[in-house]
Every structure is written in structure tokens, then in C-alpha cells.
Design a protein around this nucleic acid. Structure first.
Lengths: 143, 143
DNA sequence: AGCGGTCTGTTGAGATGTCAACACACCCGG
DNA sequence: CCGGGTGTGTTGACATCTCAACAGACCGCT
């Protein structure tokens, strides 16, 4: 089979559009309210919420699914803006959220929750959330 | 309500992961087989399939949801690589797919179809595709 | 013709992401 | 102690994206 059927095409188009839409809307809400980009927010929530404000750079990279290089560049920018600082620890580096960083996440958290509800959760209530979730799970092999 | 409930969180996490996964896998398949990036493929399919190999830059920008600037930069790069050329027409510009460009899409099309099936359609068969589609449609206001 | 106003692209600067090469600390076997 | 892996980040070059400023063509009105 070479071309997608109409049905397949409809699913694909809807998927692509929805992915884009949800992603950009949520990111825009957070940026508008706090100045944090999506990566900024990702870094800070993980560092602050998952290990009390201090985390090994390597672990952070895994959690975010970033390559070491990308994270390094990004953290350098965040450091310049005063959101985090870094300390050498043994072989590697430890990322520490600064006061400004912790403040920024605190501000962003409720905005994020509201945005997720507005752009994802609420719309899905009109459909069938649990079936939808099951579908999503099929898309990500346990890997 | 400030924080997301467990259920909301599960949906959000699954959504974020699935969006990323599907997007990157499909793009990677196309790039591996043809050297075309996702934007390259988007430009070429639209120009070739929607208007026989020639399209006004402005319309292309709308179709792709790109700002004029981004498209301009991207087309400049594609032009350098010989995938398209551009001609001034009245007030604006017309994008023309070159032979190499048409060849590249021809090569990419079946790869794209296969990738969409493998990474999106087939996994969803194990769930409930029509309910899933209905959910997706709720996520994108008719705009 | 002449004068704005609008539409369409381009440009350059800066932010961000990707990739491969490199540097350094740590570990382990001799 | 030495010598090479292995693990962890950094760096620089380059690709890509965003944003605001700019430039030219066209339009409508006088």
C-alpha cells in the first residue's frame, strides 16, 4: 500500500495539528506569565520538585530526554539569567536552582496546571479521556 | 484547583511523550531515506501535490503555518540545495519545485506513508481509532 | 501623475538546537 | 604507580527559528 487512505490521512492530519496546537498554546501561556521557555520550565520543575533544588546534570539530561550537549548549552543560558547555578561534584556537575529560579517555578506551576487543563484536559472531557489515554499509551512502546 | 490530579497528570505526561515520540520517529524515517527534513518535505508536498509544482510563497506560508520570515529563510536554504527555485510574480514570489525537488518528494512519499502507519496508525488500531480521532478534533478549535 | 497605505518578502541579529571533537576525572587491571 | 577505558560535560561550527526593521510593488484616492 503506497498512499494513505482517507481515514488514515484524517487521523494523521488531526494528530499533527493537535500536537502542534496544544504544545504551542501551553508553552505560550507559561512564557507570557513568567518569561520561562518550555525547556526552562522543564529544567526547573525537575530540579526543584524531584530532588529539592539540586540535581546531577546527567540525570537531568535523561529525565528531559536531552543530549548532554544541548543541556549544557541550555544551562549556560539559564545560568546567565540567574535561574540556576552549577557546582562541580566528583566527575560531573550539580545543577542548583537559585532563589530566582525557585520563585519562577512557583509562579509558573499554577499557570502550567491551568494551561494543561484549558488546552488538553477540558477539551478531552468532551470525548472519552480514558480511551484516549489508552491510545496514547499504545503510541509509546515501553522503551 | 492548583495542582493537576494524578489522572490529569497521567494524561498530560502520556500526551507529551507520545507527541514527541511520534513526531521524531516519523521525521527520522524520512530524513534517513531521503535527506529531507520535515519542513523540506512539507514545502515540497504542498508545492507539488496541491498546485502542480508551483505556488505563491504567501499561500505556502499559510498552509504550513509559518511566518513569512521563517519561510523565506527556509526557502533560501532549499534553493541553495537545488530543491526549489523562485520567480518574482507581480507583488510576490512563486516557489517552483525543481526536478531534484520533485524526485525527492516522489521518493519520500511512500516512506512517509509507511512511517505514519508504523508509528501512528498501527499502534492506534490496538486502541479505538475513531474515538481517538474524535478526541483529537476536540483539541483543535475549528479556527 | 503623486501620495499614502497595504501586502509581500527579505534581511540581520540573536536565541536555540544538532553534531562531532575534545578535555577531564574516575576506575580498574597490571 | 601507570595506562587505557569509561563516564561526564564543554566547546565550536553550523543549522534553524523568532522577531523587528526594512524595501519594493500594488492599490485607491485626488
Amino acid at each position: 500500500m503506497e498512499k494513505l487512505t482517507d481515514e488514515e490521512m484524517a487521523l494523521w492530519q488531526a494528530w499533527k495539528l493537535a500536537s502542534e496546537t496544544v504544545r504551542t498554546h501551553i508553552a505560550a501561556d507559561i512564557t507570557a506569565a513568567t518569561g520561562l521557555s518550555d525547556p526552562d520550565f522543564g529544567v526547573l520543575t525537575r530540579v526543584v520538585e524531584l530532588s529539592g533544588g539540586r540535581m546531577r546534570q546527567n540525570r537531568l539530561a535523561e529525565l528531559m530526554g536531552y543530549h548532554r550537549s544541548r543541556l549544557s548549552h541550555h544551562l549556560a543560558r539559564m545560568e546567565e539569567r540567574g535561574l540556576i547555578s552549577r557546582e562541580a561534584v566528583g566527575s560531573g556537575m550539580e545543577v542548583v536552582a537559585t532563589a530566582a529560579g525557585r520563585e519562577a517555578v512557583a509562579l509558573a506551576r499554577p499557570v502550567h496546571a491551568a494551561a494543561v487543563r484549558e488546552h488538553l484536559i477540558e477539551p478531552l472531557r468532551r470525548a472519552d479521556p480514558s480511551v484516549f489515554l489508552a491510545g496514547l499509551r499504545e503510541l509509546t512502546p515501553s522503551k
